[in-house]
């Protein structure tokens, strides 16, 4: 499935090296508790950023703020030049430029796979049904699901649903893709098929912000890894550096939870 997947998808017309997403001093509170604490971040066009951290640290909330699903209490988030604000009138137009894939797929259960994909391009972007169908079928074929176009979501496995959700987001030609723990709800054998699709998207130079608990995958796909703890970005480094030499104690602790020491040998020596 790897290789030149999804290559001719348009939607990336900003020159390379330009800041696509900027967050300046973003603060997010739920009632009293501070979820995002003065986050500043720039994502360049074409960059793949992986966001890691223990659960409850604010990773998902950060993605949701970027897509204006949550209001922020301070700071500014911009996509290109446009400010992202849940209250602004231009919100639907800016959201079209941001594709989001959720942990629980959230396909529309009453529509076929193809209708799920066609809905937003037809109703929001007013594109021609025939054109989008053609594109959707090509994309579905590339993620190995061409023959599922007429199926309903309930007839698909979790991994298949998630690949459809990715295609659905791609058909809007987003400039930025957000992935919110997209493999967290999947059976282990199905994780790979979804991650392969994301890897292929990275290979073609898409700008992506990915929240994941798959550390091997994070290492493979990321240009930069951000480590979020208690609402602050406390590490921001290339994956090699982050995984080999984390600067903070908190990140070391976090990474340790993913490795296991061999106990068998030691046990024998002890006896």
């Amino acid at each position: 499935m790897a290789g030149p997947l999804l290559q001719d998808v348009p939607g990336q017309d900003i020159a390379c090296g330009q800041a696509l997403l900027t967050m300046e001093h973003v603060t997010k509170r739920f009632e009293e508790s501070l979820i995002l604490d003065d986050i500043s971040l720039t994502i360049q066009k074409g960059e793949v950023i992986v966001l890691v951290g223990s659960s409850g640290c604010g990773k998902s909330t950060m993605l949701r703020c970027i897509n204006a699903l949550e209001p922020i209490q301070g700071g500014i988030i911009r996509l290109g030049e446009e400010q992202i604000d849940p209250k602004s009138r231009g919100l639907t137009s800016i959201r079209q430029k941001i594709g989001m894939v959720f942990q629980s797929y959230e396909l529309f259960p009453h529509m076929t796979v193809l209708d799920n994909i066609l809905l937003a391009p037809m109703k929001v972007q007013k594109r021609k049904k025939a054109d989008i169908t053609e594109e959707a079928v090509i994309l579905l074929e590339r993620v190995g699901l061409k023959e599922k176009a007429g199926c309903f979501p309930r007839q698909l496995s979790g991994g298949q649903k998630q690949r459809v959700a990715i295609v659905r987001a791609l058909c809007m030609h987003p400039e930025l893709m957000l992935f919110d723990e997209v493999t967290a709800a999947l059976d282990p054998e199905m994780v790979r098929e979804v991650l392969d699709v994301i890897l292929a998207l990275a290979a073609q130079g898409r700008t992506m912000l990915i929240v994941t608990h798959e550390m091997q995958f994070a290492r493979a796909v990321a240009d930069r890894v951000l480590f979020l703890d208690k609402g602050k970005i406390i590490e921001n480094a290339p994956p090699e550096e982050f995984f080999e030499n984390p600067k903070t104690e908190r990140a070391k602790q976090f990474l340790n939870t993913f490795s296991f020491e061999t106990v068998k040998g030691k046990d024998k020596q002890g006896k």
Partner: peptide, 19 residues
Amino acid sequence: HQYESGEALGLSKVQIYRY
């Protein structure tokens, strides 16, 4: 999440209800 999924695709409030 169904509402949010629609919002994330850029659908308006009315469209989310309708479709």
